[in-house]
């Protein structure tokens, strides 16, 4: 097949879309916990890894169907998220930012260690959801799995909008995020909202891990970089802004794929991180947030 300039370009765009959707999901995970607690969960990347590895075990190890394994893996990581909140965040009486950062870092090392002992150091292969024969569009190929990723991101975004705008629980969570004291006075149990935010965030992380594993082959050590990029995307989109995260995720994913294709694949990750750092330095409020508002937040 002849690989013209446009075909290459389109190929990179597809690759970027696929990465971007994953970053967007990780970033949304960061956003949920941040909105509810003001905490950045450094173990977010580990949720992704655990979701992916669990999926591998259930499908290739136990031979479960994709749908069933998907649900169990998500549930499994969600429970880990709840445990994390109950055992490590909830008991802290006098939380300082530094202490909370170190606690979530500790949890991330712990989860990483556990993952390494259970799943070993190798990377794990998993079959694609619906075959790995690519579709060809204008000479460029796109995997069915990529379509799955885009579709699932879409479903989750819609579910989010519905949950936070139309359900009572979702509205309560938003109320807590805006003003916790007022929400408590209105009879909302803020502690439960924090737990719920960890559960949701872990669940979303797991989904990201599950859908990406067939493409990247998950191993125990991937959490750090995924988490770092996901956080960067969350910042670019404006911390707490989930729609911003989706746009920023796709933007960063595409930029990364393009720089990998046209500049150097060795430095692809470094370039992506550099872009994210630059945004962090120049506009810590994100591309879509107002700078004045974020400066007023307690950071």
């Amino acid at each position: 097949m002849e690989s013209g300039g446009f075909t290459d370009f389109l190929q990179f765009i597809f690759m970027g879309l696929q990465r971007g959707c994953i970053y967007a999901l990780v970033a949304m995970g960061f956003n949920i916990i941040y909105s509810a607690t003001g905490v950045i969960n450094f173990a977010q990347g580990e949720f992704v890894v655990l979701g992916g590895l669990m999926m591998v075990t259930l499908t290739t190890g136990f031979g479960l169907s994709i749908v069933f394994a998907f649900l169990i893996s998500t549930l499994f990581v969600t429970i880990i998220g709840i445990l994390m909140e109950r055992c490590t965040i909830n008991p802290v009486k006098k939380p300082t930012v530094l202490r909370l950062i170190i606690i979530t870092i500790a949890v991330s090392i712990l989860l990483k260690g556990v993952a390494m002992i259970i799943w070993g150091k190798g990377s794990h292969y998993m079959r694609h959801f619906s075959g790995s024969d690519p579709f060809v569009i204008a000479g460029a190929t796109i995997l069915p799995q990529t379509l799955w990723i885009i579709g699932i991101l879409g479903v989750i975004v819609v579910a989010f909008v519905v949950f936070f705008n139309l359900t009572m629980t979702g509205k309560s969570m938003r109320a807590c995020a805006i003003n916790r004291d007022a929400a408590c006075l209105a009879g909302i149990n803020d502690r439960n909202m924090v737990m719920l935010s960890f559960a949701l965030s872990a669940g979303i992380g797991a989904v990201a891990g599950i859908i990406v594993t067939p493409i990247i082959q998950m191993d125990y050590a991937r959490g750090a970089l995924l988490g770092l990029k996901g956080f960067g995307v969350a910042v670019v989109g404006g911390l707490g802004n989930s729609l911003g995260a989706v746009i920023a995720g796709i933007l960063v994913g595409v930029l990364e794929a393009l720089s990998g294709g046209y500049i150097s694949s060795h430095y692809m990750d470094a370039i992506a991180l550099l872009i994210l750092l630059l945004v962090l330095f120049v506009r810590p409020s994100g591309l879509f947030g107002s700078s004045e508002a974020s400066r007023l937040k307690e950071f």
Partner: peptide, 18 residues
């Protein structure tokens, strides 16, 4: 160092990774 808390932690983490 104009950043605080989580932002600073992530910025330095990103620097180390680069």
């Amino acid at each position: 160092l104009r950043l605080k808390g989580h932002y600073l932690a992530m910025a330095t983490l990103g620097f180390g990774a680069i």
